[in-house]
């Protein structure tokens, strides 16, 4: 049958690629930002975005219209990262839920202590330092929640974990961030003393 090759190739019409670009291109800065946070390296971040973008383009036929495109493409980015060299290295050191819990037990922060000024006055370098210290599972959840402003349901789709786990990771991430800011603040005051 001489026409098979044409039939197969015609499954990817131009308008579909154009629809993909319309949806994906506005998300590139956000994808790149998260990729850089995950890989901590400019070249790896660009490679990760490029690979994810092409994977998403090739798999766009499988994207269900009416569902959340942002969650879909971030899930591709995240899965691509997990199978990359840096991702594999990171997953070797990924702590289990219980271990994350032990690192920053809930209630480790004294809620009676006013922290409002500390957080309000925390400069960008302190916040970057606190984010960099987060283990990857907590970093990715806080980036999706606070920076990408995704709902818990969308984060659960991206990370392929239950909403309960999303919530507990967010709680641990914020406890860890507050603890880290407090530590940095104490160290800065000691240096200044």
């Amino acid at each position: 049958m001489t026409l098979l090759s044409w039939k197969r190739e015609a499954q990817k019409p131009g308008p579909q690629a154009s629809a993909f670009e319309d949806l994906a291109l506005p998300l590139l800065p956000a994808l790149h930002n998260v990729a850089f946070w995950l890989t901590r390296n400019a070249t790896d971040a660009e490679d990760l975005v490029q690979e994810s973008f092409l994977k998403a383009l090739r798999g766009f036929a499988g994207f269900e219209p009416g569902t959340n495109f942002k969650a879909w493409i971030f899930r591709i980015l995240r899965n691509t990262y997990l199978t990359s060299r840096t991702g594999l290295e990171a997953t070797r050191t990924v702590a289990l839920e219980e271990e994350l819990d032990e690192q920053h037990p809930e209630g480790a922060i004294d809620r009676q202590t006013p922290e409002i000024n500390l957080i309000r006055l925390a400069d960008r370098a302190m916040l970057h330092g606190a984010l960099e210290k987060l283990p990857p599972p907590l970093l990715e959840v806080i980036l999706l929640c606070d920076v990408e402003e995704m709902k818990y349901k969308e984060i659960a789709v991206v990370l392929e974990i239950p909403i309960g786990t999303v919530m507990s990771r967010i709680a641990r991430a914020r406890t860890a961030l507050r603890k880290s800011l407090q530590t940095q603040n104490t160290q800065a005051r000691e240096r200044g003393a």
């Binding site: 690629a17 993909f20 670009e21 291109l25 590139l28 800065p29 790149h32 930002n33 850089f36 946070w37 400019a42 971040a45 660009e46 975005v49 490029q50 973008f53 092409l54 383009l57 960008r124 916040l127 970057h128 984010l131 806080i142 980036l143 606070d146 920076v147 402003e149 961030l177």
Partner: peptide
């Protein structure tokens, strides 16, 4: 954190490169 997390600007030319690749 929302402000501090938006840390890494996309390099110039990446979007064009991806468009061409696509």
């Amino acid at each position: 954190i929302a402000k501090a997390g938006q840390r890494y600007a996309m390099p110039a030319g990446l979007e064009e490169r991806l468009k061409r690749l696509a």
